[in-house]
Simulated scan of single mutants.
Amino acid sequence: MRVAILSGTVYGTAEDVACHAASLLASAGFETWHDPRATLEQVLAFEPQALLVVTSTTGMGELPDTFVGLYSAIRDRFPAWSGLPGGVIALGDSSYGDTFCGGGELIRELYQELGVREIQPMLRLDGSETVDQETDSQPWIADFANALRA
């Protein structure tokens, strides 16, 4: 199964988590693709059979600038991803209250519009509580791999 891993980051942590996810999923037997500067054309050329988005949150619950272009292109072109399995790993800081992991919530809304099936609950990584978000994401990524196989 081909898994496209899309990421948006501010300080690089979400990209690190995305690279770690790509490595873990590849070790689990999946064909993974991740490019932090991906265009929609590149994603479509990979012909994903599953999607994983790893994104941090900025400002008042928005997506990072590094992801806005791809997000807008997906919304504008509305690729035929209905029925694809997907997952979201959101990074944020719970001290921001209601906007905590807001970037991930925007991706979940996009999944609903596209018909992407979220196969497990979004992982929320709290930067104010964890030092190693790559390690903290590992159990969720293992569960995601198992859900993809199911």
Results as ranks from 00 to 15, higher is better:
123 L>P: 01
22 A>G: 09
76 D>Q: 14
145 A>P: 00
22 A>F: 04
122 M>V: 08
35 D>G: 10
62 E>I: 01
144 F>C: 10
3 V>I: 12
147 A>E: 09
51 L>K: 05
17 V>M: 05
17 V>R: 00
144 F>Q: 05
48 P>E: 11
121 P>S: 15
23 S>G: 14
13 T>Y: 03
111 Y>N: 03
59 G>P: 05
150 A>T: 10
33 W>N: 06
97 G>R: 07
81 W>L: 06
103 G>D: 04
14 A>D: 03
69 G>K: 04
74 I>G: 00
74 I>M: 11
82 S>L: 12
10 V>G: 00
1 M>W: 08
18 A>K: 01
39 T>L: 14
68 V>W: 07
138 Q>E: 15
12 G>Y: 13
94 S>V: 09
107 I>F: 00
10 V>R: 02
95 S>H: 12
29 G>Y: 11
55 T>Q: 05
135 T>E: 14
10 V>T: 05
121 P>Y: 07
33 W>P: 01
75 R>C: 07
43 V>E: 03
127 G>T: 14
6 L>R: 00
102 G>I: 08
50 A>E: 05
146 N>I: 06
56 S>I: 03
1 M>N: 08
138 Q>W: 07
6 L>S: 03
45 A>G: 10
27 S>I: 10
126 D>Y: 06
82 S>M: 13
112 Q>E: 08
90 A>N: 06
129 E>R: 14
49 Q>G: 13
115 G>I: 10
86 G>K: 01
125 L>V: 12
136 D>M: 15
16 D>P: 07
67 F>P: 02
1 M>K: 08
106 L>P: 01
115 G>R: 10
100 F>Y: 14
21 A>L: 09
115 G>T: 12
84 L>V: 15
17 V>A: 06
64 P>L: 02
111 Y>P: 01
70 L>W: 03
24 L>F: 07
104 G>Q: 01
117 R>Y: 03
103 G>K: 01
47 E>P: 04
58 T>D: 03
67 F>W: 04
120 Q>Y: 05
71 Y>M: 08
74 I>Q: 02
4 A>Y: 01
61 G>N: 09
118 E>H: 02
95 S>E: 11
110 L>G: 00
78 F>G: 08
44 L>I: 12
113 E>C: 11
92 G>K: 01
100 F>M: 12
53 V>I: 10
120 Q>W: 03
3 V>L: 05
27 S>C: 14
22 A>S: 11
48 P>Y: 07
145 A>K: 02
9 T>Q: 05
138 Q>L: 14
18 A>H: 00
26 A>F: 02
90 A>C: 14
28 A>N: 11
105 E>N: 08
129 E>K: 15
80 A>Q: 15
103 G>A: 12
104 G>D: 05
4 A>G: 03
121 P>R: 13
123 L>G: 01
19 C>E: 06
67 F>G: 00
3 V>M: 04
115 G>W: 07
84 L>T: 13
23 S>W: 08
99 T>P: 12
56 S>V: 04
23 S>M: 12
144 F>M: 13
94 S>K: 13
127 G>H: 10
94 S>G: 10
56 S>T: 09
142 A>H: 11
